[in-house]
């Protein structure tokens, strides 16, 4: 058995490693997304490292802020994402990781509210609705993971005889559905769009510029890595090959997200909330009932 301090130190180490590696991986994923999106639209697209260039440029811009505190809120959001990633990738508690990454979303919302701009405030309101939409399904997903593997701890998955996905296909499908909301991709890019124009100018990030906007970008990268990790962990069992399978699944999930992003127009928030909850109740509910009887 591990001592509690050991575990804490291990999580801390995981957080540091995640804080270093996730931006690199996430940046490459974002670059890949821009390339793949461009190809889907019949364009050549920017270089693979374009997201990195963007962030470096944003850091070099002049410091201008409306409220003076949005940068601090975004720093907090980054710390929480790193912590959530650290918990997850050091084999910690899935439920805890999900809660803590939501804290990051809340700080992002606070950063948007703090500017007092009508566009940013509307974006923040919509971001809150997005949190409300995806959270039930994320919780049910974690519960299904617990019921299938016997523990919320990711580390335990490496001792399983069968991967969790064998028992949780409905919950996994439900998770894929809310993943689009969590990644703020079209058709659920209500709060802020990754693409050029929208009716709220840029929603949550309208008033952010320079370093603060760079932090938002880095947060997106880290979130992407974490969420794709969640998708991959469903395919882990007590066989080292499963890690390769999990990575392939994570990449396939990313491709699916890009495809959805490119092919669907934005929906209204009412539809998003309704469908996210219906999917959560149906997929999550059915899965929990099934697991309860197995």
């Amino acid at each position: 058995m591990w001592l509690i301090t050991d575990k804490f130190l291990f999580t801390l180490l995981g957080t540091v490693v995640f804080a270093v590696l996730a931006p690199i991986v996430g940046c490459l994923l974002a670059g890949l997304e821009r390339k793949v999106s461009a190809r889907m639209q019949g364009r050549v697209g920017p270089p693979l490292l374009q997201p990195y260039y963007d962030v470096r440029k944003l850091i070099a811009k002049d410091d201008v802020t409306v409220s003076g505190v949005d940068g601090i809120y975004m720093t907090c959001a980054l710390i929480f994402v790193a912590f959530a990633g650290g918990i997850f990738f050091s084999g910690g508690n899935l439920l805890m990781s999900a809660f803590i990454v939501t804290m990051a979303a809340l700080f992002f919302i606070m950063a948007a509210y703090s500017s007092r701009s009508p566009f940013a405030e509307l974006g923040a309101g919509r971001e809150s609705l997005q949190v409300m939409s995806y959270e039930p399904m994320v919780l049910l997903m974690a519960v299904c993971f617990f019921m299938a593997s016997g523990s919320f701890n990711i580390g335990e998955a490496f001792w399983l005889r069968m991967p969790v996905i064998c028992y949780t296909i409905p919950a996994f499908i439900g998770f894929l559905f809310v993943l689009t909301i969590k990644l703020r991709k079209s058709p659920f890019d209500l709060s802020t769009s990754h693409h050029a124009h929208q009716e709220l100018v840029r929603g949550t990030t309208t008033e952010m510029s320079g370093k603060t906007l760079a932090k938002v970008e880095i947060m997106h990268w880290c979130e992407t890595v974490l969420f794709l990790g969640w998708a991959g962990v469903f395919f882990i069992w007590g066989n080292p090959v499963s890690i390769v399978i999990a990575v392939v699944v994570a990449l396939a999930t990313w491709f699916l997200e890009i495809w959805i992003d490119n092919n669907f127009a934005r929906v209204k928030w009412q539809a998003m909330l309704k469908w996210a909850w219906i999917v959560a109740l149906v997929c999550g509910g059915i899965n929990i009932v099934l697991l309860a009887f197995i």
Partner: peptide
Amino acid sequence: CPGFDVERFGIINTGNPKHAD
């Protein structure tokens, strides 16, 4: 648009003065 595709050079049409160069 695809014919000229200025995103090749990292150019994005932002629609937000605070993000634009």
